[in-house]
Simulated assay, not measured.
Amino acid sequence: MPRHKHDLERVELLKKQPIEKLKPILPEILEWLQDGNWPIAEPVENVLLNFEEELIPYIREIFSTNEGCWKYFLLHGLIRKLPDYTLKELKADLNRMLNTPTEDEKQEEIR
Rank of each mutant, 00 (worst) to 15 (best):
1 M>S: 14
1 M>F: 08
3 R>Y: 01
3 R>N: 11
3 R>M: 10
5 K>S: 13
5 K>G: 02
5 K>Y: 01
7 D>G: 10
8 L>T: 10
8 L>Y: 00
10 R>N: 15
10 R>K: 15
10 R>Q: 14
12 E>V: 06
12 E>R: 15
14 L>F: 01
15 K>N: 10
15 K>W: 00
16 K>E: 15
16 K>T: 10
17 Q>M: 15
22 L>K: 13
24 P>T: 01
24 P>S: 08
25 I>A: 08
25 I>F: 03
25 I>C: 11
26 L>A: 10
26 L>P: 03
27 P>E: 04
27 P>G: 06
27 P>H: 07
27 P>F: 00
27 P>V: 03
28 E>T: 07
29 I>G: 07
29 I>M: 13
30 L>C: 02
30 L>D: 01
30 L>Y: 01
30 L>N: 03
31 E>G: 11
31 E>D: 14
31 E>V: 00
32 W>R: 04
34 Q>K: 15
34 Q>A: 11
35 D>E: 12
36 G>E: 08
37 N>E: 13
38 W>F: 10
40 I>C: 03
43 P>E: 01
43 P>T: 06
44 V>D: 04
44 V>W: 04
45 E>V: 04
45 E>C: 09
45 E>F: 00
48 L>M: 02
49 L>V: 00
51 F>R: 06
56 I>D: 03
56 I>H: 05
57 P>Q: 14
57 P>A: 06
57 P>K: 14
60 R>G: 06
60 R>Y: 06
61 E>H: 08
61 E>D: 13
61 E>G: 03
62 I>R: 02
62 I>N: 02
64 S>M: 05
65 T>M: 13
65 T>S: 15
66 N>P: 04
66 N>W: 10
66 N>M: 11
66 N>D: 15
68 G>W: 05
69 C>A: 11
69 C>R: 15
69 C>D: 05
70 W>F: 15
70 W>K: 04
71 K>W: 03
72 Y>T: 07
74 L>N: 02
74 L>K: 02
77 G>Q: 07
78 L>V: 09
78 L>C: 09
79 I>E: 01
79 I>C: 04
79 I>T: 02
80 R>G: 13
80 R>D: 00
81 K>Q: 15
81 K>L: 11
82 L>Y: 00
84 D>K: 13
85 Y>I: 06
86 T>Y: 04
86 T>V: 14
87 L>R: 12
87 L>A: 05
88 K>W: 07
88 K>D: 11
88 K>I: 11
89 E>A: 09
89 E>R: 14
90 L>G: 06
90 L>D: 01
91 K>H: 11
91 K>M: 12
91 K>G: 07
91 K>T: 10
92 A>M: 11
93 D>S: 15
94 L>S: 03
94 L>E: 07
94 L>M: 13
96 R>V: 06
96 R>I: 09
96 R>D: 12
97 M>T: 02
97 M>G: 00
97 M>L: 12
99 N>Q: 09
99 N>V: 04
100 T>I: 10
102 T>D: 03
102 T>C: 02
103 E>A: 08
104 D>W: 05
105 E>I: 05
105 E>P: 04
105 E>V: 04
105 E>Q: 06
106 K>M: 13
107 Q>T: 10
107 Q>R: 14
108 E>W: 07
109 E>C: 10
110 I>K: 02
